[in-house]
Design a protein around this nucleic acid. Structure first.
Lengths: 135, 135
DNA sequence: CTGAGAATGAGAATCGTTGTCAGCTAAGTT
DNA sequence: AACTTAGCTGACAACGATTCTCATTCTCAG
């Protein structure tokens, strides 16, 4: 089931799309579509921003890229990367500080399927409480 | 501890802000800032959209409201629901729909204490994926 | 009660994203 | 290899959500 980073079947393989795929493959962490556009221009300088959006949407539908919560922008991140650098947030309600943790727990895919017919792709967990310093 | 739905300390309590807080308190599920603006106008018809945005930002910083990954819109939702029935959200990245679930999992308090010295009080889990209808 | 400065409404400005359309091109057909 | 045509593309207009500006209003400490 390895959703390898590639274009979906049935679409044409153009230099523009290949440039975007290559840029995603070379990127780590999360990035905006505009940043991706810049990077992909190294491979195909005539690449337009609209085409970048269209290709990102293709990859998203194909599972190669993930939408992320951002600061007003639609951030996106390579799926493999998403599974690697997985982390959650510990938010201190006293000082407002945010810490990251790799501790993770979530309902299983099987459970979500059975109870809700829902196929999970990603999750976000924010834990609120009191941090060490404020305790 | 109970993060009651209220304005942060140090800010002035105006009828506009109170109208927004009241509208959030009465809302369930997710909503856009524009929808919130409409609802809050019942209490304060002269309320402006910009002020609604400003107040939502106050509440967000204060933990009263939570941004969700939506269809390009910034969804927010009331966090006071925690006191009623504990539940989490299944957000469909295809149609933007939000479903509630009682399925719940989170790192244990013991683990959080040991690894981070963090004392958890509440948590939020948003699961993103594909809903039954969009599958 | 008063003054200082915080908060507001209205609407312009900004910015990310999507739509439009004439021209271009991949890829199957002959 | 040339032909055909539906799928793609870039440029830029359009759009909608969010933020900014600023003159005016209002809160609240003193």
């Amino acid at each position: 089931m390895a959703a390898r980073l590639s274009l979906p079947d049935g679409v044409r393989s153009t230099t523009q799309r290949l440039a975007v795929v290559r840029a995603v493959a070379e990127s780590s962490g999360s990035f905006t579509v505009a940043e991706l556009h810049d990077r992909a221009r190294k491979f195909e300088p005539r690449l337009g921003l609209a085409t970048t959006y269209r290709t990102v949407e293709l990859l998203r539908a194909n599972g190669g890229v993930h939408p992320l919560l951002g600061e007003g922008h639609a951030y996106v991140r390579c799926r493999a990367e998403h599974e690697a650098g997985h982390h959650h947030h510990l938010v201190c309600t006293s000082c407002g500080g945010v810490e990251e943790t790799e501790l993770c727990a979530a309902p299983t895919e099987a459970e979500l399927q059975r109870r809700h017919g829902f196929r999970p792709a990603a999750h976000e967990l924010d834990i609120y409480g009191t941090c060490r310093r404020c305790a």
